[in-house]
Each structure stands twice: as C-alpha cells, then as structure tokens.
Design a protein around this nucleic acid. Structure first.
Lengths: 110, 110
DNA sequence: TCGTATACCTTGTTCACTTAGGTATTCGCG
DNA sequence: CGCGAATACCTAAGTGAACAAGGTATACGA
C-alpha cells in the first residue's frame, strides 16, 4: 500500500469511495488516492489491479471498457448496489476502528 | 487482530503503548487493549505472542520473568530506548495515516 | 472437582501487499 | 524523427502478519 509499508486493509474502502461518483478507470483510482491524500498514500499497481478484480468477483464493482480522457482504451468501474452498501459499511467500520486506536494511543495512563 | 478481521499493522504500536508505563505481561497487554478500546479491538493470542517475540527480536522490548498480581509466573515486558523511540515514530505514522484516510473518505466529490 | 480465568506457547493456513517484472499507446521535447 | 515519460493495463513469486485451532499448566471459586 503506502510508500512506507503501512496498514493493510484500507485499500478496498478507498477504491469503493473513488468509484462512488461514477465510472472511473483503475489508473485514475490510483491517481485519485494519491491526490486526495496529498501523496500520503501511494497505491502500488501490483496491489491496485488485483484489488479491483477481487472487488469485481465479490460483486461490488462492475467493469466496462471505454475510452479515457486521453483517448486511450481503459476499463471503467462502477459501483453495484451491493458495492454501495459495502461502501457505507466499510466507512463505518473504518471510523469505529480509527476511533478505537486513537482512544488507546491517546490514553495517558494504565 | 479485531473480532471482525480488521486492519493489519496496528498491533505493534498498541503493544508498545501498553508497555510504555512500565513492566506488563503479555496477557495483561491483551486485556489492556480490549479494555481501553471498550471491546472494539480484540487481540487473538495467536497474534499477540508472536508479535511480542518479534518486537523483542527487533530490540524494542526486553523481557523478564516475574510474578503476576495473581501470584503466577508471568513474563514481563519493558520498553528499551529504541522501543521508546519507535513508539513515538509509530504513533506519528498512525496519526498521519489515519488523517489521510479520513481525508479521502470525507471528500464529497472527485 | 470442575469449570473459568489466568498465562504461556506453536503450527498450519490464508491472503493482502511488495517486488519486479511485462505489454502497448500517446504525447511532448529536442 | 526519435525517445523518454506518462498513461493504462496485467501477472507471478515471495513475504509476513493475522487467523484458526490446537496445546500445557496453575489458581480460584462454586
């Protein structure tokens, strides 16, 4: 995942979020993650493409070939109904988890 | 780690944090994590003990046999100087990472 | 005495991510 | 025109943390 090997498991929710505003291709998803996190998160392609196929197999994403902004062939992804539900659930899970970890790291005594 | 397979990679920093107030044994660390996160995070023993050995091999923790509050044999862990430095660094990494993910999940458009 | 909590451990498996490649097209620059 | 960089896709091998599922042993209360 990140440039300095960080926390496994957040890639899926980030992908679902990136796709939530309508069709976007894989390469664009990688760019979106990098940009919106101001280079804090960097997705390796070797993690990105397998993740997309995984999410498609799970029925959370649908794919369709199209033409990118630069006039090139690109595979566009879009959320299924299940994908939209999973996005909501995953965001909630992330918030709960992040809150719990922060709670622990913020305690000032045993 | 958590009850419903969550984000890998945060166990180490939580352990370092638990140990930061002085000697504590492995079982107590597991209990501390569960309690301070109000059951949100549940550490499996199959993850906890290997993690402790890993951190010890890395020179971040030191171990010593002692006697627990209940009068039983227990292995107590304590931070090394390197461990204290790594704790600080890891907490910063976590905050940066959590902030970046939250940033992405909070955006309302592409 | 019998279950529960405490306290430690390992072995096998799974699976996300890293590393490290590969193909092909388009575009800008010298 | 040539050539590197960016775009856009992909996979195979290896790593390593966490999970699942066991195991040992002691202390304590019912």
């Amino acid at each position: 995942m990140a440039g300095s090997d960080l926390f496994v498991g957040t890639l899926d929710v980030l992908i679902l979020k990136a796709v939530s505003w309508g069709p976007i291709h894989g390469y664009g998803i990688g760019r979106w993650i990098r940009q919106t996190t101001r280079d804090a998160l960097q997705v390796q392609e070797g993690a990105l493409y397998p993740a997309l196929h995984r999410l498609e197999r799970k029925g959370l994403l649908e794919e369709e070939w199209g033409v990118s902004e630069t006039g090139r062939e690109a595979k566009y992804y879009r959320l299924t109904t299940a994908g939209r539900g999973e996005l909501r659930a995953a965001v909630t899970r992330w918030r709960d988890y992040a809150h719990a970890v922060t709670l622990a790291l913020d305690t000032t005594g045993r």
